[in-house]
Write a protein that binds this DNA or RNA. Structure first.
Length: 818
RNA sequence: GCGGGUGUGGCGGAAUUGGCAGACGCGCAGGAUUUAGGAUCCUGUGUCCUUUGGACGUGAGGGUUCAAGUCCCUCCACCCGCACCA
């Protein structure tokens, strides 16, 4: 028999068979198997699949296929995150309708994914750009609007001059647009926001239930992003000014050390304070300059402090001192109250500012160094001084005391603050979900009635999509002009579209019933399937997408539509595929084309390479990967199936015991490895089993021994998680009917996990001197006696006195000489 | 600057609870079979020493322990996140 492993033939043979069998369909209501939801992050349809997809979907597929083998009804869906700028940019560049471009790419990716043999349930595919999907974005928006969670406000927002749109805080990376890397500036605009800050505490506190199940790194990033801090709000009167001004501070205990007062230069408060004073013009110039400064300049930490004295004085509520009021850009308008008390001795930024403008420095916490001299603010704990009633107290005591004092006088209270800002969702672009609001000159913001949803996008044909700072939808006059649902008068649709992160905030629920027409999802199905048991995706979404999804689910919980607080029970962040240490890109010239690799070595070899390369969360360097080696191994495994000569269904009871033990041990170890997400180790165990089986056939019990069939079948089933084509072909050659994907995981017999002899390591003074084969059941006393009479051990001891003998039966004995 | 993570052969990486370091693979070397081989199979492959055999060895240094890649302390290197958040 000179058959050879031909991946091409195998791929062509089995793909149509699977289409017929649909082994991964999950929607049968009579299906009695227990349920599991394995979710891969859905792709953006920008061209064909690439190496990154190949890795991510290979990893997710191992889990999905494993749980199917373990007898679960696994929901493993896929869809397309199909709204977004690239479609629009391609449209502008090439004159193609974004819709045409998007659907063409989806079809291409879908075909590639099928060939890549991902175990998706193809009945559940969704595209976020379908009106059937974005209908429910609009519905959610209205629910939030009705609950006061969606609102419009004017604010200085992040503006990308290149994309000509606003960006969420989360989309600004180091002062630049995450998409095009242009420097982001500020622009005052009225925009829609979702009130995620209302959920800050729950987003933070509910992370306790994710501890140990999500990567610690992601939890930490989310914690930092939310940035909860506790301190106090302190009320300062301003001399000759009608309104008092609050400041937020985490160090209210240093209130006696305040020597000045600062408000954010670009805040309305600053303008108000300066109005009518001789500082008005200076502030206006300064504020203009600040707005022009890009974030990247603002962020450079060694930038000298700047500011304008507003010719006003704030009154320190605890000692009546008059503090000069300044405006500066080092105070942020949208954090806390946009105003601070300046305590230069104990805050570095305040100290830098004080030194720049010759303001006094007064230490109120004892320390050896004097900040006024060193230029280094002291933040350490210590006894308070110059602080009236706080003198002698440490930090914790002083904070408690000052909050008590402020409370009694009604000039302050304990307060919590967050770094998290509300989620800005308006986008001035075409290819997204229209915001279902109608602006009526009489009635104001009027929601589109639910029965008129979805508000469909007008055809792109005839619209100018090029970025110009205003939404293209506003120019679709016919579309935008509507009658106000309340008064019937002439009104206009909101011309903006939603951030595409709205789509991904709940798409995992839509999969449960993707064709539902009378609601976003079926709550009954959600009770069955949710939360997602295992989510697999890139760490690039560690903050944005995961935070927003968690927020949405908490809103849904409050709406009574779901009964859980966290959408994703477990999270796996796969690494990236890199080449020679850096990200693959055409411009770098280190791009490895997936299609080339697939043609060269086949789907299974690529999938195997990805899974075997290392731990799933680590980056895979393609330079370290041998797809040819993977193909060689698959051929080696496949050849086993041709050497099995016993009939299918042969009783394995009488098979070669040694091989049977190896098989059961291997299956047991693979199981543990897969369940702890160490897929590379699972593959290694499969390789060991293949090697042992080959040896048994060639030089051991021979190909007709039932144990060889048992081992080879175990190999086929194990490989079905990673190399489905090879596995299916092996399964057929072993005389079975397809599909191996539903063959069931081999049952591990505990009896066969027991070794009949173990190697006992004998150490003398911690060094290995002898190995003994002993029965696993040997007692400590027996082992001690055996070892102490062993000639080699006695020789190693060389007559030395024995101090102690540590016996860990059956595996180890350590003799400690005196 | 603050916070977090990671350091194991030439390379990717293994190693329940502290208990044989280097599983599995890549690469490399030698051999078998071949007209040939980028096919297949076998053997070897941490470093050093003169061998049977031994010594050393998990970023560096110290500690705990009969026993440390694993636990503790100090340091170094690299990677990631945040970055005027009061």
């Amino acid at each position: 028999m000179t058959e050879t492993y031909d991946f091409d033939r195998i791929q062509q043979r089995w793909l149509p068979v699977w289409d017929e069998l649909t082994p991964f369909r999950s929607g049968d209501p009579t299906d009695a198997r227990p349920k599991k939801y394995i979710l891969d992050m859905f792709p953006y349809p920008s061209g064909d699949l690439h190496m990154g997809h190949a890795e991510a979907y290979a990893l997710g597929d191992v889990l999905a296929r494993y749980w199917v083998q373990r007898g679960f009804n696994v929901l493993h869906p896929i869809g397309w995150d199909a709204f977004g700028l690239p479609a629009e940019n391609a449209a502008i560049r090439n004159g193609i309708d974004p819709m045409t471009w998007t659907y063409a790419n989806i079809e291409q990716q879908k075909a590639s994914m099928r060939r890549y043999a991902c175990s998706f349930d193809w009945d559940r595919v969704l595209n976020t750009c379908d009106p059937e999907f974005y209908h429910w974005n609009q519905w959610f928006f209205l629910q939030m609007f009705n609950r006061g969670l969606a609102y419009r406000k004017a604010s200085n927002v992040n503006w990308c001059p290149e994309c000509q749109t606003v960006l969420a805080n989360e989309q600004v990376v180091a002062g630049a647009c995450e998409r095009c890397d242009s420097l982001v500036t500020k622009k005052k605009l009225t925009q829609w926001y979702l009130r995620i800050t209302d959920y800050a505490d729950r987003l933070l506190d509910d992370m306790a239930e994710l501890e140990g199940k999500w990567p610690e790194k992601v939890l930490l990033m989310q914690r930092n992003w939310i940035g909860r801090s506790t301190g106090a709000q302190v009320t300062f009167d301003i001399a000759d000014y009608p309104e008092p001004v609050n400041v937020y501070t985490t160090r209210p205990d240093t209130l006696y050390g305040a020597t000045f007062f600062v408000v954010a230069a670009d805040s309305p408060l600053a303008a108000d304070l300066a109005r009518g004073t001789s500082a008005e013009a200076a502030l206006s110039d300064y504020a203009d300059a600040v707005k022009k400064t890009s974030d990247i300049d603002r962020l450079s930490t060694d930038r000298p402090k700047s500011g304008v004295f507003l010719e006003r004085y704030a009154i320190n509520p605890v000692n009546g001192e008059r503090l000069p009021v300044w405006a500066s850009d080092y105070v942020l308008a949208d954090y806390g109250t946009g105003a601070i008390m300046g305590v230069p001795a104990h805050d570095q930024r305040d100290l830098d500012f004080a030194r720049a403008f010759g303001l006094p420095v007064r230490a109120v916490v004892e320390s050896e160094e004097d900040p006024a001299q060193t230029g280094v603010a002291t933040g350490d704990d210590g006894a308070h001084i110059n602080s009236g009633p706080l003198d002698g107290l440490n930090k914790v005591e002083a904070i408690a005391k000052i909050i008590e004092i402020l409370g009694e006088r009604g000039t302050g209270e304990e307060a919590v603050n967050y770094r998290l800002r509300d989620w800005l969702i308006s986008r001035q672009r075409y290819w997204g979900t229209p915001i279902p609001i109608i602006h009526c000159p009489q009635c104001g913001e009027v929601p589109v009635p639910e029965n008129e949803l979805p508000v469909r996008l007008p055809p792109a044909d005839g619209l100018d999509l090029s970025p110009k700072g205003a939404s293209p939808l506003g120019a679709a006059v016919e579309w935008a002009s509507v009658a106000c649902p309340q008064c019937g008068g002439a009104a206009r649709r909101d011309p903006d579209t939603m951030d595409t992160f709205v789509d991904s905030s709940w798409y995992f629920l839509r999969y449960l019933d993707p064709h539902k027409t009378d609601g976003p999802f079926d709550p009954a199905q959600a009770r069955e399937w949710m939360p997602v048991d295992q989510y697999v995706g890139g760490v690039t979404h560690a903050i944005l997408h995961l935070l927003y999804s968690r927020f949405f689910v908490k809103v849904l919980l409050d709406m009574g539509m779901v009964d859980f607080a966290e959408p994703f029970t477990r999270m796996l962040n796969q690494g990236m595929v890199v080449m020679d240490g850096s990200a693959m890109s055409k411009s770098r010239g280190n791009l490895v084309r997936l299609s080339d690799e697939l043609a060269e070595n086949g789907v299974d070899a690529i999938r195997l390479s990805m899974v075997f390369a290392g731990p799933p969360e680590d980056d895979v360097d393609w330079a370290d990967v041998s797809t040819a080696g993977a193909k060689k191994f698959l051929a080696r495994a496949w050849r086993l199936s041709g050497d099995v000569t016993s009939a299918p269904g042969t009783d394995q009871g009488g098979g070669d015991l040694a091989l049977r033990k190896i098989t059961h041990r291997a299956v047991n170890d693979m199981q543990i490895a897969v369940e702890s997400l160490r897929f590379n180790v699972a593959v290694a165990k499969t390789m060991e089993l293949v090697n042992a089986t080959r040896k048994a056939i060639d030089t051991g019990c021979g190909g007709d021994d039932p144990a060889v069939r048992e081992a080879t079948e175990a190999v086929a089933i194990a490989l079905s998680l990673v190399a489905p084509y090879t596995a299916e072909d092996m399964w057929a050659r072993l005389g079975h009917t397809p599909s191996v994907a539903r063959a069931g995981w081999p049952i591990v017999l505990p009896d066969l996990l027991v070794e009949d002899s173990v190697t006992c390591v004998v150490q003398v003074a911690g060094k290995v001197r002898e190995r003994l084969d002993v029965p696993p059941t040997i007692t400590e006393e027996e082992l001690r006696a055996l070892v102490l009479s062993n000639p080699a051990v006695l020789a190693a001891l060389d007559g030395a006195e024995i101090r102690t003998v540590i016996v860990r039966a059956p595996k180890l004995v350590n003799i400690v000489p005196a």
